[in-house]
Structure formats: C-alpha cells, structure tokens
Computed example of a mutant assay.
Amino acid sequence: MPDLSGKIAIVTGCASGIGAATVRRFLSDGAQVLGTDINADAGQALCDELGATFLPQDVSDRARWSEVIVAAVTKFGRLDILVNNAGNVSGASIGDGSDEELFAAWDQVIAVNLTGTMMGCRAAVAAMKNNPGATGSIINIASTTAITPLPTDVGYSASKAGVRALTKSVATWCAKQGLAIRCNAVIPGATETGILNAAEEVTPGLKAAVAATSPMNRLAYPAETAAAIAFLASDECPFMTGADMLVDGGALSIHPGF
C-alpha cells in the first residue's frame, strides 16, 4: 500500500465518483486532504464525514485557483499532491444543434476539463517549487476517450486528449527545470461516476455499451482508479513522469472486433 503519511493533497471534483474515492484513499494512506467541488453541499458533506477540509471551487475560475492553493499552504504549510479530477461532459457531437448550442457546450467543457486542469498545474507547480527539494506530484485524470474518442461528445473527447498532451508538457518542463515535480495522467475506462450517468441520459444504453468494450465486461469502480492515483501520488515511483496509467479493464488492449 502506498504511504502518503504527512503528505498534503488537493483533490478537485471531490464530491462524488473518482474524486470522492480518492479523498477516502488518500486519508486512509495517511495524507491530509483539501477537497474542492462546484457542488458545495455534497463536497462539504463528504469532507465532514471523512475528516478532510473542503472549499467550493469552479476549476474554470482562474482567481479561485490562487485562493485554493493559498488556503492549502496557509493551513498545512505546503502542497505535495494535486489531483486534477474535476470534469464534465458536453453531450454534443460535431453535428448536433445550432452553432450557438454546440459552441456553448464546447466552450464550457474545454474551460473545465482542459483549461481548468492547466490552471491547476500552473498553480501547483508554483507552490511545489517552494517545497524542500522542489518535490511534488500532479495527477491529471484523462479518459480512454482521449485515445478512442466518442463520436457523440466532441468536446469531452478533445478535452481529454488535450489533458494527455498537457500532462506530458508539464512533466517534461518540470524535469528540464531540474524540479522534482512529477506530472502523470491516469486514464480510466468507463467508471461508475456522475459523468457517465449524465452521459447515459444523453445517450441511453451508453453504460452497457462501454462496459462491453472491456474484456472484463464491466464498469470500473472509483476505488480502483483511486488506487492508481495513490500510487502516482506516493514516493514509490520517483522516475515516473509524463506517463499514462491505464485503468481500463483491458479495453484499449483488445482489437475491437473481438
């Protein structure tokens, strides 16, 4: 089990799904956690239950990122881990709706999933540079749709592909600067989360279809992805940066005809 004793972590999108499972896992592994979510009621309730600190946050708000980082450093003294988990879906294909509807959906999902993740990386790197040895671990949550996009959601697919490239850019920049700040991406397969449930409402039957893409023929549990995140957050993998960690039940390892 990864040891996160004494580590200070921020987890965005903490109110449900992978974010909530990650808060639980980090606390059980010894970390102190500040969770954030745009759903303040659910996020506060979860953090109160588990013994974490909570702040409301819209990750697409640049000013709020500065406030969250300052709050974490003020309360705990430093920042060791950032999990950029908050995300949403656009629910629109390239041919859906009017231009205004598609562009509004695109702008919103890119602002949260991609720009919000970039702003989190930037704010975290600035804080982690002050750690002894300039150490830290940033984990960005991408998706298998970054590699095998959904025709039914152009914004989500593009944003998660962007998260993969962003992760590698951040990782290599930090390494080239001589910083011991690692940045890796976790690529979950179809997982029992609020986002997938929302996508199911737009595309009925999607959950069963994506579950069938895995040779294991099921959806992932959020705790399974949280375990991978905890490993990347720990000191067990100091030479691992810019990597994609698949937690997809083998979905991307099998020919689609089989």
Rank of each mutant, 00 (worst) to 15 (best):
I181R: 06
C183W: 02
L196S: 06
A185N: 07
T152L: 10
P204K: 08
P204Q: 09
A185T: 05
A198V: 04
K207Y: 00
A190N: 06
E200W: 09
G155V: 11
T203Y: 15
Q177T: 05
C183F: 02
T148P: 00
N184W: 00
A185Y: 03
A199T: 07
E192G: 01
I195P: 04
V154P: 00
A198S: 15
A209Q: 14
R182P: 11
A165N: 14
T152Q: 14
L150R: 01
G178M: 02
G155I: 10
E192V: 06
A190V: 06
V186Q: 03
D153H: 07
D153V: 09
I147S: 02
L179K: 05
A175W: 02
P151C: 00
A199Q: 15
I181N: 05
V170F: 08
A190M: 05
E192K: 13
P151Y: 01
A208G: 13
E201K: 15
T148S: 13
V154E: 04
S159M: 03
A161C: 07
G189E: 06
G205E: 07
P188R: 08
P149D: 11
A146C: 09
G189D: 04
T167A: 08
R182D: 11
S159K: 03
L150D: 07
G155P: 03
L196K: 06
T191G: 05
A161Q: 11
L206F: 15
A171T: 04
K160E: 10
V154K: 04
A209K: 13
A185F: 03
N197H: 13
S157T: 10
K160L: 09
E200I: 12
Y156H: 13
N184A: 04
I181S: 03
G189T: 04
I195L: 15
G178A: 07
A175N: 06
T203S: 12
T145I: 05
T203H: 13
T193L: 07
G205A: 09
R164I: 15
P204G: 02
T145L: 06
A165S: 15
G162A: 07
T152C: 01
K168Y: 02
Q177P: 05
T191L: 05
I187A: 02
S157K: 10
S169A: 14
A209D: 11
L196W: 01
E200R: 12
I181H: 08
L166P: 13
S157G: 09
G162S: 07
I181G: 02
P151R: 08
V170E: 06
A175D: 02
P149V: 08
P149K: 11
G178K: 02
T167V: 10
L206V: 09
K207W: 00
T167N: 08
A175R: 14
A209P: 02
N197A: 15
K176Q: 15
L166F: 11
E192L: 10
A180T: 03
L206C: 03
P151L: 01
P151A: 00
N197T: 13
S159H: 03
A180E: 10
L196I: 11
A209V: 04
A175F: 04
A165H: 13
L166E: 11
A158W: 09
A158F: 08
K168A: 12
K160H: 09
A161T: 11
A180V: 01
V170K: 04
T167K: 08
S157H: 11
A180S: 14
V170C: 07
T172I: 12
T191C: 14
P204N: 06
